[in-house]
């Protein structure tokens, strides 16, 4: 077990153990929500959520569609 620190949507967040993207989605209570994720500037396709492991220092952007012009 090792502590990891991620930057999610600009804010630092610590997690007690390493995990993949799918586990992070569960951790953040985003299951079932239509989201897209970028990790260190690259898109993480939904099909790759299980396969992509997160590492300390990763920069994540998690977005949704909202009303806009």
């Amino acid at each position: 077990m090792k502590l990891i620190e991620l930057t999610i949507n600009g804010a630092a967040k610590r997690f007690p153990q390493s995990m993949n993207v799918a586990q992070l989605v569960v951790e953040l209570n985003l299951v079932g929500k239509r989201i897209a994720i970028e990790r260190n500037g690259d898109i993480v396709p939904r099909s790759q959520f299980e396969a992509v492991a997160l590492a300390s220092g990763d920069q994540l952007e998690i977005v949704v569609a909202v009303g806009g012009g």
Binding site: N9, K33, I35, E61, I62, A65, V66, G68, G69
Partner: peptide, 20 residues
């Protein structure tokens, strides 16, 4: 219809209605 792409509110209830 145009939509904007914005950071999600972490900690928000996933069952909240969405634009979609």
């Amino acid at each position: 219809v145009t939509v904007a792409i914005r950071r999600t509110n972490i900690g928000q209830d996933a069952s909240q209605p969405s634009l979609l």
